[in-house]
């Protein structure tokens, strides 16, 4: 009985004795890290794909990304070229429409379809930049507040509360009014308004992780504050942030469109969807297509991203997993 330990390690009976239900424990001992990652991905897809809406949202979103990338190939005209002979031309299926302007043209004779296709680039760009700024700022503030607690926490969170107390669009409007209108400033303003959500989410996640024993264990082996915050704790807080990031992506697009509509965002002739709406405001009754299609583009994009976000939440949030 002296070589008991060797015996049990070679046959590895524990994995066999305990939790036979475990998904990945059943993998053969020699499996590579790649296969493990594939298994994790497969599990993620299993949960994600159970949500039909999420899959549909993902497909629409991927199409949108493709459209944005291939805009010069797909668009029939330049987004800024003015056809003076075809002002407010109706869409092809309406009487008087032509295949030249499939979705009609705007008051300056520009092709709406081409402008929408190029507009997808702006919308995605806005979403990516705004979410990136908001997530980075939110994580830094939330991490500091949750980790250090005390006065740092109180101060940071009260500032966040003040930002959250304003109607978000109004605050963004004020910021743009101060910074000056333009797409860049609009993005900064929206990021600033969205950032408290990330800060609060990060803080809550950090505070619950901080109590876990693996954090204490890392402290016992001598990890510094920065290492604990960024290497030990942060990776474990990412799942809710990814979900919030997706949902904020659509909020950013929506807010940018709203600022554009109010004349504070992207300036004409930029083919940004909200700006397009604003330019066409006075023609709503005469030419319905100039407002309908940019509006629909915003609606479909935001809906698709929100559906995808819901699916991500189902797949990433362990609390919602399993029945």
């Amino acid at each position: 009985m002296s070589d008991r330990l060797e015996a049990d390690s070679s046959t590895n009976p524990e994995a066999h004795l305990e939790e036979p239900t475990h998904l990945v424990a059943a993998a053969p001992p020699g499996a590579s890290a790649m296969r493990m990652r594939a298994a994790v991905l497969a599990e993620f897809w299993h949960y994600f794909s159970q949500n039909r809406g999420a899959v549909a949202g993902l497909v629409v979103f991927l199409l949108l990304v493709l459209t944005a990338l291939m805009a010069p190939v797909l668009a029939p005209h330049s987004p800024t070229q003015q056809f003076r002979d075809a002002l407010l031309a109706p869409p092809v299926w309406v009487e008087g429409g032509s295949w030249k302007f499939i979705l009609g043209s705007d008051p300056l004779g520009r092709d709406i379809l081409s402008r929408l296709i190029y507009g997808a680039r702006f919308s995605l760009f806005i979403g990516v930049v705004v979410v990136a700024i908001a997530v980075t700022g939110g994580i830094l503030i939330g991490l500091a507040a949750g980790y250090f607690g005390g006065a740092v926490d109180v101060f940071a969170m009260r500032v966040m509360d003040i930002i959250l107390a304003f109607p978000s669009l109004l605050l963004a409007l004020v910021l743009v009014a101060v910074l000056g209108p333009g797409l860049g400033n609009a993005m900064i303003a929206i990021a600033l308004v969205l950032q408290p959500h990330f800060a609060r989410l990060t803080r809550a996640a950090v505070m619950s992780e901080l109590r876990r024993e693996y954090v204490v264990s890392a402290r016992v082996v001598g990890a510094s504050h920065l290492r604990l915050m960024f290497v030990t704790i942060l990776p474990n807080c990412l799942a809710p942030l990814i979900v919030q990031g997706t949902l904020s992506f659509s909020t950013a697009i929506l807010d940018a469109a709203a600022l554009g509509f109010l004349g504070m965002g992207a300036q004409p002739p930029t083919p940004e969807w909200g700006t397009m709406l604003a330019e066409a405001r006075e023609f709503i009754l005469r030419a319905w297509w100039v407002v309908t299609f940019p509006g629909l583009a915003i609606l479909v994009t935001v809906l698709a991203i929100n559906l995808m976000g819901d699916g991500l939440r189902d797949a990433l949030d362990p609390k919602l997993k399993r029945s």
Partner: peptide, 13 residues
């Protein structure tokens, strides 16, 4: 009885 405990693995083997 001794300084080490018998484990289930012993019996299985």
């Amino acid at each position: 009885t001794g300084t080490r405990l018998p484990t289930v693995a012993d019996f299985r083997l």
